[in-house]
């Protein structure tokens, strides 16, 4: 019994036991001096901990300004460059997808139509970039829109080619 209760004393000192366990601990403590002493020592330790670290203060009196200065300098150059990286990766992925999409149709069903469509898709990407460049905050949105347009045009091309080859 003593061992079992002893393992609960720390949580008892923190008042983190359910009422059933708390009552068991209190019942045991009424007959066990060792556990009573241990609870007293635990409470003393808790008080010592909070009083020791409570009185510590920072030497730096302008923490707010220093943090804000760092925030400003970091937000001044960071987002733009990372955004550019993401945009480049997205554009690369889009071109690849567009090519794969066309490739299956183009190679099997005629290069002539394919070349035209590839140049259309390139001009789409190019125009997406020039618009997005003017509004850097909306770059991602435009890229996603461009992707949707590309996919839609790709789909209509496949249909076109299908109709052409069957007709």
């Amino acid at each position: 019994m003593h061992e079992e209760i002893n393992g609960l004393l720390s949580a008892y000192a923190d008042d983190e036991l359910g009422s059933k366990q708390r009552k068991e601990v209190e019942k045991h403590m009424s007959v066990c001096g060792e556990c009573r002493d241990e609870v007293a020592q635990l409470l003393e330790l808790k008080t010592l901990l909070s009083s020791t670290y409570e009185e510590l203060e920072m030497k730096n009196s302008n923490m707010e300004q220093m943090v804000l200065a760092r925030i400003r300098s970091e937000s001044a150059h960071e987002p733009q460059s990372s955004r550019g990286g993401v945009a480049a990766a997205l554009a690369g992925a889009m071109i690849l997808i567009a090519f794969l999409w066309f490739a299956s149709s183009v190679i099997t069903k005629g290069i002539h139509v394919g070349v035209t469509l590839t140049s259309i898709s390139f001009s789409l990407i190019r125009s997406a970039f020039s618009v997005a460049g003017a509004l850097p905050n909306l770059l991602e949105i435009f890229l996603v829109l461009a992707l949707i347009v590309l996919l839609a045009s790709g789909w209509s091309v496949r249909r076109l080619l299908d109709t052409k080859s069957t007709g």
Binding site: E54, N60, M63, M66, V67
Partner: peptide, 26 residues
Amino acid sequence: RKVFRHAFAMVHDQMEAEDITQEAFV
């Protein structure tokens, strides 16, 4: 103060604790 106290009680070094405090808020 709360952040600083936590950092100090972990690293026990005034300068480093203040540095961690700054970094935490950023």
